[in-house]
Design a protein around this nucleic acid. Structure first.
Lengths: 237, 237
DNA sequence: CGCATGTTTGACTGTAGTCAAGATGTGTGG
DNA sequence: CCACACATCTTGACTACAGTCAAACATGCG
């Protein structure tokens, strides 16, 4: 969210930068990049606004450019499994099913690039490199879901939370040397991501605080004090 | 497992039949099918034998043709998450990571078709349809893992078991009108698939028996008595 | 400031895990 | 073919972790 002071990118600029540095565009030639930019539709979603709805026909894929988003699956019984927390550079909507298998919602105001499915796949059918990149991305998603499955199936409450914080840290702050994480989601969202109730999630936060693994700065920010301990709890290889 | 009496297929015949009727070969022309058959290596694994090992470099993909297999991920702490139970027509090994993210083992004696990665991807690079099929399969795998994640994250013990039995029934017996399932895996394997201990898994079986949802015939066979109840517990949409 | 929303904590309950014994299959050799 | 030994599964008793219900505590907003 914070940006260098004085420099304010336009939506179009931000979207363009995100697209060009994304895995989707790795190795693509200039002509193809231009075509991709042509079919891309920058969209702004307000906090809590639905980006795509579970069960609807798959009509597009999305590339988040700013803000943060949540991907979730709901069942008739009212249960909800949060499948992912997304941010700039993640992907959304790739599927060969003709219905979306999940919903996606903006957690904060977000800029998202939308690629109409028809246009995108038409383009991909002429460009093997683009198609390869889609395959790569799908495999990355699969790898992440397998990690997630392992965490939920085998770990205890505070270890599951450590797993999530580790994931977010890898993504958000690792390169920037900072050990402070933004958590735009609520405790209930985290609980539904980890297969826990919001109360148990809160207790897991308290436990990590007590053990000096993290420190809280307000509700939506945590500082990682002991990276090694966090990694041990998360049991990342 | 049971086959028409008197007719005994050779390994090569069985492998060929499985390959030709697989999603992998959907829409491929005759020349390509021949090439695929040329690079395919039929292999026989004894019960409990390792097919591929977690952490090894990805050198091949596999197509199970008979028997049943288990896919699992192990962590340093000794925990194990079973990721899938495979059988004829499933897939194994697709990945863009250069290491296998899991191990696979034969549960019973199994015939498996092996496609060396180098040969397979060389072939795929010249055949868009084959490449499309790989993408489709990866997406199917992803969809299954998302179901699995939901079950482990949100369901109670006996509901998780119902989910697995439902999955196996869909795959094994639905079309053949029979409601009898073979369970070649042990209770501990099922537990590690569902994120439960083997004792809790056993109690979940007992509960489904008590509620007349299933009946057991020996240790490795169950009969589904109440399909509707099973589906309700599994909460499949 | 006061209310609404979200989080933390407490007390209690319930579900699943642990440890241990007994039952049930399964395979082998006498 | 039976008896025995071993694997695996089931059940019981107890424990521990997470869920539920409820109250108190923050935080942010009009």
């Amino acid at each position: 969210m914070t940006r260098s002071p004085g420099v304010r990118k336009t939506t179009a600029e931000l979207a363009r930068d995100t697209l060009l540095s994304s895995d989707l565009c790795r190795g693509l030639d200039a002509a193809l990049l231009t075509q991709l930019e042509t079919i891309a539709q920058p969209q702004i979603f307000a906090a809590n606004q639905l980006i795509l709805r579970q069960g609807r026909v798959t009509d597009a894929i999305y590339l988040p450019c700013s803000g943060s988003q949540i991907v979730e699956r709901s069942a008739a019984g009212g249960q909800r499994q949060v499948l992912a927390f997304l941010q700039r550079g993640d992907y959304l909507g790739f599927s060969t099913s003709n219905q979306f298998l999940y919903s996606a919602r903006a957690l904060e105001q977000s800029i998202v690039l939308r690629f109409p499915g028809r246009d995108f796949y038409a383009l991909a059918s002429t460009a093997p490199t683009l198609r390869d990149n889609v395959g790569q991305i799908t495999n990355q998603v699969l790898a992440r879901v397998l990690d997630h499955l392992f965490a939920i199936g085998q770990k205890r409450a505070h270890e599951r939370l450590a797993f999530l914080l580790w994931q977010l840290w890898q993504r958000q702050a690792k390169d920037s040397q900072r050990a402070t994480l933004e958590l735009p989601m609520r405790r209930g969202d985290i609980g539904d991501y980890l297969g826990l109730t919001l109360e148990t999630t809160s207790r897991a936060f308290s436990r990590l605080r007590k053990d000096d693994v993290i420190a809280s700065e307000g509700r939506n920010r945590v500082q990682i004090l002991d990276t090694e301990a966090l990694g041990r709890l998360a049991e990342v290889e």
